[in-house]
Simulated scan of single mutants.
Amino acid sequence: MVAVSSGEKKALAIILVVAVVFVAVVGGLVFALTSGHDDPDEPYLQVTSGSHFARVRPSVWCDVKLEKCDPPAGTQARRPAAFPVQPGDTLMLSVSADIASGPWFLVTQYATPRGVQEPGIAVKLSKTTYTEVLRSTADRTLVSVEVQVPSAVAVGDQTNVRGYLSLDTTPYDRKK
């Protein structure tokens, strides 16, 4: 039998405590990042403006072939997430890696003194853009944002959208 000195016991005890603390911290971090998000494989947006932050789940999300959808095809989509952005503020929007891994579309709409502008559509190429910064001013107020992800299903020369994630960014004082 090998005798263990008191110094070796102390070193082993310290190593054991450090390992337990490490596992607890990593486990807590993983839990914090995944709690409140039902499906870790579901795509999402992370949005922030000022001191406000939200994680937005899809209004509609289907598999690539449009065979399985959530909510199911023929039922009503989830309402756009309310995330007011005041004039003068900036919205920072980040898409999850599974959205950015393929092409996606950013659709924005602004209210101006002349009325609501036609939606602006920007095409984002695969693995090139994860984060967008959208500014809202008194003369050009951001009122809605939508991220659309194309499917593998095409009708003629049009590709269908497999899902979208929507935000209502209308400022509080503009909502009636």
Rank of each mutant, 00 (worst) to 15 (best):
A32N: 08
T34P: 06
T34R: 09
S35E: 09
G36W: 04
H37P: 06
D39M: 08
D39F: 10
P40Y: 11
D41H: 07
D41F: 11
D41T: 15
D41E: 00
E42A: 15
E42F: 01
Y44C: 12
Y44I: 12
Y44T: 09
Q46T: 15
Q46R: 10
Q46A: 12
V47W: 11
T48Y: 11
T48V: 13
T48D: 11
G50S: 01
H52M: 11
F53Q: 02
R55M: 15
R55N: 14
V56K: 12
V56P: 15
P58F: 05
S59T: 08
S59C: 05
V60Q: 11
W61F: 13
C62M: 04
C62N: 10
C62Q: 11
D63K: 02
D63L: 01
D63T: 10
L66F: 10
E67A: 13
E67G: 13
E67M: 10
K68Q: 10
C69H: 01
D70T: 06
D70H: 00
P71T: 03
P72L: 02
A73Q: 09
G74D: 11
G74N: 01
G74F: 01
G74Q: 04
A77W: 04
R78L: 15
R79T: 14
R79H: 15
R79E: 15
R79N: 14
P80C: 08
A81Y: 05
A81R: 12
A81M: 01
A81I: 02
A82Y: 05
F83E: 06
F83K: 05
P84N: 07
P84L: 03
P84R: 01
V85E: 05
P87T: 04
P87L: 01
G88V: 07
D89L: 00
T90H: 00
T90E: 05
L91G: 09
L91P: 15
V95D: 11
V95E: 10
S96W: 05
S96E: 08
S96L: 02
A97F: 04
A97L: 08
A97K: 00
A97I: 12
A100P: 14
P103G: 02
P103N: 03
W104S: 09
W104V: 04
W104P: 10
L106F: 06
L106K: 06
V107K: 00
V107W: 00
V107H: 06
Y110N: 05
Y110R: 03
T112I: 02
P113E: 05
P113Q: 10
R114P: 02
G115R: 03
G115L: 07
V116K: 01
Q117V: 01
E118Q: 14
G120E: 09
G120F: 08
G120S: 07
I121K: 00
I121W: 05
I121G: 03
A122L: 10
A122D: 15
A122W: 03
K124H: 05
K124Q: 12
L125E: 15
S126P: 13
S126Q: 13
